Amino acid sequence: MATVILVRHGRTTANATGLLAGRAVDVNLDQIGREQAALTAGRLAAVPLVGVVSSPLERCRQTAQLILDRQPGTPYTPIEGELTECDYGQWQGRTLTDLASEALWTVVQSQPSAVVFPGGESMAAMQARSVAAIRRHDAAFEAEYGAGAVWAAVSHGDIIKSILADALGMHLDLFQRINVGPASVSIVRYGADRPSVYATNTDAGDLSWLANGLRSGDAPVGGGAGRNIP
């Protein structure tokens, strides 16, 4: 299959103040967030992307645009509603400090699969829709551009954590073990037999080795020789 680079949006004004923005409009990257996203765009500049798929929320579209500004050619750039932020319902717009006093907070930490946000969606539904969207786009990019195609999906922290949990074969109740920082890069390749996770939560390092795509096939016993460093 193709290779997907999962990019979280850069830091926002809400992130900086400890506010759960959710799906609120006009939540933009702050100066640090723009710098973070620009750094990620620079890392991805060496990788010809066939597409950059983005959540519809501003902070993701801003991050995606910075990536596109450093790309040669004209990658396909759809907006994907199924990659939007979790619907936190009545939690949206409240501070994380305030939310930590809610009984549901403990369930979010220890049993996400049982969580339904008041007036919002369940975390299980969030994972189901986001994983389905990633796999659908991945299959479409491979069908169009071949197995060596590399594309990026720009989304949100909990969304990317849930996608990584699925790729790692982890139950959703374990997904809080995964960290996904602002403007971080994670890399997944969906093979014929199983997904392979090549990176999680990276914010530095050369990515030019992705320009030649990733090999499919069996996992090397013992770990193999790894990639050639340019």
Score class of each variant (00 low, 15 high):
24 A>S: 15
60 C>G: 12
150 V>T: 14
90 Q>H: 13
176 Q>D: 11
13 T>G: 11
117 F>A: 12
152 A>H: 02
16 A>M: 05
34 R>P: 00
5 I>E: 05
203 D>E: 12
180 V>G: 02
119 G>W: 05
130 S>D: 03
6 L>A: 09
119 G>R: 05
184 S>P: 04
129 R>H: 04
177 R>D: 03
72 P>H: 07
220 P>W: 08
18 G>P: 07
124 A>I: 03
212 N>M: 02
147 A>R: 14
146 G>C: 11
19 L>S: 01
177 R>S: 12
68 L>N: 01
226 G>A: 09
47 V>L: 09
205 G>M: 08
66 L>D: 05
170 M>S: 04
122 S>A: 08
88 Y>T: 12
27 V>Y: 01
49 L>P: 01
204 A>N: 08
221 V>Q: 12
23 R>D: 06
91 W>G: 10
103 A>I: 00
34 R>F: 00
149 A>S: 14
156 H>A: 08
49 L>D: 05
191 G>Y: 02
209 W>A: 14
17 T>P: 00
190 Y>V: 04
181 G>T: 03
116 V>T: 15
28 N>S: 13
174 L>Y: 11
79 I>W: 01
154 V>E: 10
221 V>H: 09
41 A>Y: 01
59 R>S: 10
207 L>M: 15
182 P>D: 13
165 A>C: 06
172 L>M: 06
102 E>I: 00
166 D>S: 11
121 E>F: 07
73 G>M: 07
13 T>S: 14
132 A>I: 02
90 Q>C: 04
43 R>T: 03
116 V>S: 11
133 A>P: 05
220 P>M: 10
47 V>S: 09
132 A>R: 15
6 L>R: 03
111 Q>G: 00
14 A>V: 02
222 G>W: 10
158 D>Q: 11
98 D>R: 10
78 P>Y: 08
223 G>C: 11
91 W>T: 10
41 A>P: 04
146 G>K: 10
213 G>V: 10
205 G>D: 10
62 Q>W: 04
156 H>D: 09
55 S>T: 10
127 Q>D: 03
113 S>G: 12
53 V>N: 08
169 G>T: 07
42 G>M: 04
31 Q>V: 13
173 D>Q: 05
1 M>H: 07
144 E>S: 13
85 E>M: 02
89 G>L: 10
156 H>R: 08
195 P>Y: 10
68 L>D: 06
220 P>N: 09
219 A>V: 14
226 G>P: 07
178 I>L: 15
104 L>K: 02
223 G>H: 11
230 P>F: 03
181 G>D: 15
192 A>D: 14
221 V>Y: 05
180 V>L: 04
147 A>F: 00
134 I>N: 01
111 Q>N: 13
141 F>H: 11
97 T>M: 02
212 N>A: 15
230 P>H: 12
126 M>P: 00
87 D>Y: 03
